[in-house]
Amino acid sequence: MSTLAQLAAETAYTAAEAKNNAAASGAGMAYGLAAIGPGIGIGYLVGQAVQAMARQPESAGTVQTTMFLGIAFTEALALIGFVVFILLKFV
């Protein structure tokens, strides 16, 4: 029986490992899905900003500042996904 117990101990799939596996896959999916929306949003935003700057070069300063503001807002959502990733992986 002892060899069986040894074998069982070596190949045991413990609760901690199961939790870590689930956490890893969950974390990866969380951030991956969270990055889709802001990626599209920021791409669209910067494209519109470039168009605005090309149409009216003298407003380029204002447009650039507003662009950074919009990027910060949109990126916040992706970064909340990153926080979820950290929480799942390391907590």
Partner: peptide
């Protein structure tokens, strides 16, 4: 029962600190 004991041991590892708090 050995398996259960080992599983119980594996489940109690120290909780890492939450980086967000």
């Amino acid at each position: 029962t050995t398996l259960w004991i080992l599983a119980a041991e594996g489940a109690t590892d120290t909780a890492p600190p939450n980086p967000v708090i």
